[in-house]
């Protein structure tokens, strides 16, 4: 039950910045196809693997070469779990917008943005650290590790 190779911690941080911007654009435009795309991005990271997550690919090819290598590594399981939480919110948001329940779409997107922003600005992974709290509210929820 390996979650994959440990990752350069700057990668998820970079992904969180892009995610924050994308979600902000969604809130301002209510353009749900963009949120659907973000949902798929979350889904790839959570369920397929961080290596294949589009923002991680972008990070590796464009950003990492400019920053230089780092010996620091972060475990993949927390990051994937957080992507799974993001996936759930983005999915609800997409359904909300697509079904023309704009308020639902916007609120779900707002929660996802809140978490992505905390990660981008403060390097705090909400989904990871409050896993126990999430479990208490949704005891049946089990994300693969």
């Amino acid at each position: 039950m390996s979650a994959g190779q440990p990752v350069d911690p700057r990668g998820p941080r970079f992904a969180a910045v892009i995610t924050t911007v994308v979600l902000a654009v969604v809130l301002l435009t209510s353009w749900w196809p963009l949120l659907a795309a973000q949902t798929i991005v979350f889904g790839i990271g959570a369920f397929i693997g961080l290596r294949y997550a589009p923002y991680a690919v972008l990070y590796r090819s464009l950003v990492a070469p400019r920053l230089g290598p780092t010996a620091e590594r972060e475990a993949a399981a927390p990051v994937r779990f957080a992507q799974g939480v993001g996936f759930a919110f983005a999915l609800v948001g997409t359904i909300g917008y697509a079904a023309d329940v704009v308020l639902l779409g916007a609120i779900a997107t707002g929660f996802a943005l809140f978490a992505a922003f905390l990660n981008a600005a403060f390097d705090f992974c909400l989904g990871c650290e409050t896993y126990l709290l999430l479990r208490r509210f949704a005891p049946g929820t089990q994300t693969q590790a």
């Binding site: 809130l27 435009t29 916007a106 609120i107 929660f111 943005l113 809140f114 905390l118 705090f124």
Partner: peptide, 21 residues
């Protein structure tokens, strides 16, 4: 409609800032 999104965006950013600090 666009207004709602703007307010929720601002609320999420302010809440994120507060919780982060």
């Amino acid at each position: 409609m666009g207004q709602t999104g703007l307010w929720i965006l601002l609320a999420a950013l302010v809440a994120g800032l507060a919780v982060g600090l």
